[in-house]
Each structure stands twice: as C-alpha cells, then as structure tokens.
Simulated scan of single mutants.
Amino acid sequence: MSVVGRPRWEAVLVWLGLPALGALAGLAVRPLARWILDTDWVPNIGLARVIADLPQPHGTIGAAAAGVVLGVVLALTAEGEVLRVAVGPDEVTLTRDGKSRTIGRGDVSAVFADGKELVLAGRSGEELARERSDLAADRLAAAFTEQGYPWRRDGDPYRHEFRRWVPDEPELPAGANAVLGARSAALEKGDRKDVAELRDELGKLGVVVRDQDKRQYWRRVRIGG
C-alpha cells in the first residue's frame, strides 16, 4: 500500500503555526483596542472600549486562549480539505473531509494529473474520479507506478477530444445542455459543491467535463470502451 497525503512538515506547520498565530492575535487585541481609543483619526469603536476595559490579566489570557481555539478550528478545517490517496494493488481509496470512495484497480485505464486535479479514467474513457489536489505530482506518480497503475506522465490521453461548451450544443445528449447551463452558473458563483454534483450528473449522461477559467469543455464517453 502506498499512501500520499500532506507532507509531515506541512502538517506540523499547520497544527503548531495556526494556534500560535491565534494566540499572538489574541495577545494583540487589547493593545490594538487601546491604540484605536488613543488615536484621533481612527473612528471610536464601542467594542474597542469594551476590550480595553477588560480586567487584567484575565482579559488578555482569555483573548489568547480564544485565539488558540480559533487556530485549532482553522487547522481542523485545513486538514479536512487535504486529499489523501491510498493506492493498493487492488484498489484506490480517495479520502477528503472524512469521506472516502474506493475505485477498483480493474476499472482504471489511466491515471494522470490535470493541472491541480488528480484524475482516474475508466475503460470507456469515463472519469471515475477527478479531485482537486495540492499533492505533488511526482509523489502521486511514484505511488501509482509502484502499485502497477497506468500513470500517464503526458497527462490526459483524451485531451484532444474536448471542445468548448456553448449553449444549445446540438451534439450533446438530451438534458446535458441544461446541466451544463446550471453548472456554468455554479462556476460563476464559486459553488464547489454544486459544480461537483453537476459533474456527476453529466457523467451519468455519458459526458465528461473539464474547466478552464470558468469555461467548460466537454467530450463524450466512448461507448463500448
């Protein structure tokens, strides 16, 4: 089993650095409040007086403790967003934010990095998984290659089949234009969850989609492999 996740040094930096920064921010709150109250050209904010008048040293200690808690929450959030890839001889497990999905080795025909995304393609050219990832491509390549998967160093083998989507594209299957239209709106709003769900809906229609600068490019799945 080969596992690729956040480098250890990065995890240490996140788990120690964010709480430490939170504590420093907490310690700086009272001096900042007093500076606001003593400065004529900064608007007098009522909250600043409340903070400045907190009993000491309990007020400062409490602010620092609150900063540490906030730092831990941010560290937990950052940890959940990291993709973890476990590559075994028979299956691949992708885990993010406590949710996992497993893909059988026999279903995979190609694995590659497409920009900041990891893609596993199936036997008919369908995308079994497309996950945003900051994991180093060379680490992913080593893990998949070590377990005998077809890692494509040259990238997407189907890249020449994509074409830019325009509304009412006649060659798309029924319903796909509507899904792509909704997905275009989700891309504009930055709604990652909706974008991902609509990608899955397109997959069910036999359409693969990729994004570039909020523009959508599509291709059909090769029926029959």
Rank of each mutant, 00 (worst) to 15 (best):
Y217L: 02
R30Q: 13
W41C: 00
H58T: 14
R153M: 02
L18F: 13
A63V: 01
P173C: 06
L205T: 07
G190P: 08
G175T: 12
V119K: 01
A186N: 04
D40H: 05
S109Y: 05
D213N: 15
L205Q: 10
L47I: 06
D134K: 04
L76W: 14
R6I: 13
G80Y: 12
V4S: 03
E197N: 13
L18H: 05
A129G: 04
A110R: 01
I223T: 14
H160G: 10
A185H: 07
A65I: 12
R132N: 12
G46D: 11
G203A: 10
A174T: 12
A28Y: 01
V69N: 06
V82I: 14
D90C: 04
L47D: 01
L120M: 09
A75L: 11
W151F: 15
Y149A: 09
L37A: 10
V207I: 09
D97Q: 14
D53T: 01
P7E: 05
V29S: 09
P57E: 11
R123P: 04
F144H: 08
V207K: 00
S2H: 07
R159M: 05
G98V: 12
F112T: 09
D97K: 11
T102G: 03
E169D: 15
L205H: 02
Y217M: 05
W218P: 06
L21E: 01
Y158I: 02
A75P: 09
P19D: 10
V179F: 06
L202W: 06
L94G: 09
R210V: 14
V87G: 08
E117S: 15
R8G: 10
L180V: 07
V87W: 05
G80T: 02
G71Q: 10
V195H: 04
H58N: 03
A141W: 02
V68Y: 08
P43G: 05
Y149R: 01
L135P: 06
A23P: 00
A75C: 12
E161F: 07
D114R: 15
E188Y: 08
S124Q: 11
G22M: 09
R192P: 00
R192A: 15
L202K: 06
L198F: 09
G122V: 01
G5K: 00
E171H: 11
D168A: 12
E81Y: 04
Q212G: 12
W9E: 13
P31Y: 03
G181S: 06
A121S: 14
L76C: 06
S109H: 04
R215C: 06
W165A: 05
A63Q: 04
L172G: 09
E91V: 05
D200A: 15
P31T: 00
S124F: 04
Q212W: 13
Y149T: 07
R132K: 13
V29I: 11
E188F: 02
E197Q: 15
S109W: 01
R183E: 11
G22C: 12
A113T: 12
R139L: 12
L94I: 00
W15S: 00
